[in-house]
Design a protein around this nucleic acid. Sequence first.
DNA 1: AAAACTACTTGAGTTAAGTCAAGTTTTTAA
DNA 2: TTAAAAACTTGACTTAACTCAAGTAGTTTT
Lengths: 260, 260
Amino acid sequence: MINSRLQKKGSCQNLNKETRCMTCSLSSLCLPLSLNLEDIDQLDSIIKRRQPLKKGEHLFRQGNAFESVYAVRSGSLKNYIMTNDGDEQITNFHLPSELVGLDGIDCIAYPVSAKALETTTVCEIPYSRLQALSNQLPDLRRQIFSCMSKELREDKQMMLLLSKKNAEQRVATFLANLSARFKRRGYSPYTFRLPMSRNEIGNYLGLAVETVSRVFTRFQSTQMIAVNGKEVHITDRQQLLEVADLNDYDIEIGNKVLAQ
Amino acid sequence: MINSRLQKKGSCQNLNKETRCMTCSLSSLCLPLSLNLEDIDQLDSIIKRRQPLKKGEHLFRQGNAFESVYAVRSGSLKNYIMTNDGDEQITNFHLPSELVGLDGIDCIAYPVSAKALETTTVCEIPYSRLQALSNQLPDLRRQIFSCMSKELREDKQMMLLLSKKNAEQRVATFLANLSARFKRRGYSPYTFRLPMSRNEIGNYLGLAVETVSRVFTRFQSTQMIAVNGKEVHITDRQQLLEVADLNDYDIEIGNKVLAQ
DNA sequence: AAAACTACTTGAGTTAAGTCAAGTTTTTAA
DNA sequence: TTAAAAACTTGACTTAACTCAAGTAGTTTT
């Protein structure tokens, strides 16, 4: 149901009319630096709206020619890379308002693949036009730098998780992080639907599926969370943060040291 | 001895004269996109040269006001973040010509600390001035985007390593990666000196010191490498790449898909 | 040059998380 | 609506890497 709410919000504008950044309910998130109205109008003019992706469809594949970055409007995506021996490593999940494809900037080809976890709509921002536009708009330029540096900071936190945290800390961190991201988007930080499978959670967190499943079970037995399939309810947020070895400060890691 | 060569190369210009990007032997690496001569001159004018850092000194600490990014001229640095319970996670090592501090862009404070592993000299690039200059120089702007996106790609590879690779694959990947970086700088890819301790290698790779030590021993017993303290000689590069589950393509990951 | 410290190595025993297997639930397709 | 497939859970067993401990080598300091 969270999911349907996301969709509703994201798809408030169809392809024919009102597909405008200025009236988009997500614009304050995907462009947190306030661009002035004229700037937004200009950005708007280069954005292409695309038909929704069905679950399992690729937005782009590792090796495809890099042409655009994307903002998620509704639904969700995963990024993953392939190892030589063919198994995948998920490097990120993307929720509405988040930018996808920044790690391909200045590349000939996308270094990762992006696949829809559910029905997903995106705004396509052709990079050549974004670059040209950012030549004129210093605020827009700063905005892109800001997004990339935020992703760098998140990556470092992910390395910390993969290098130092145990299974319970990893899963708790993951849930706390998702919770914070839903909250920012105006949804309940306590009750939400996981758009990804247990397998994908394990893959992302460097754990076996069975371990993820066991940790979920343990977390339920201590009344910290309640899980029903993909529906998650956080019963004891404080305990979750303690297990994750996080504080409110860390949860907002992406923003904690942001300028302005 | 590798080290002394690096220093010699990096310190070819002292603080009084010839401290110029244009004549710096590293400029083709730290600014791979060819700026034209006037642009280099302008960049040059904003760069501050600093007194060398001694081993163990901080270039900046997590939480310090973000003011500059740095290019390593000689020596080496590590980046690390602190967990709540006080132990460190190394997120990167930096060799000459590499940029330090990009993940702080658009932040009030540095999100990580940077500490010298040995006597180290850096070029300081005040960010406010870099930003102002990049308003005028599209090539410089592209260059910064390029560096950040390269770091993003490297981070994803690091996640893959931490999530999927076993101890031997991690150490082999680490050595192969260092080897490639030395090679790019004009040094032997086969014989080099590790600027970091076994402890730091373990910390970075998500392994206990003892495990790193044991893997080094095993690699020596199969004649793949020869180690004497911090001196490393790669005897069988092909085998090293095989163990690392890498190919020549991956080794150049940072560059493999670069435009132009 | 010796002392004190830190870094590194090696062995022995432990353990957290992985693998394998089997059963259950949910989702998808017919 | 049912059948088939995929996703999830739980238990039993295994193992790669960790921890602890003790010794060796290398660096600083005095």
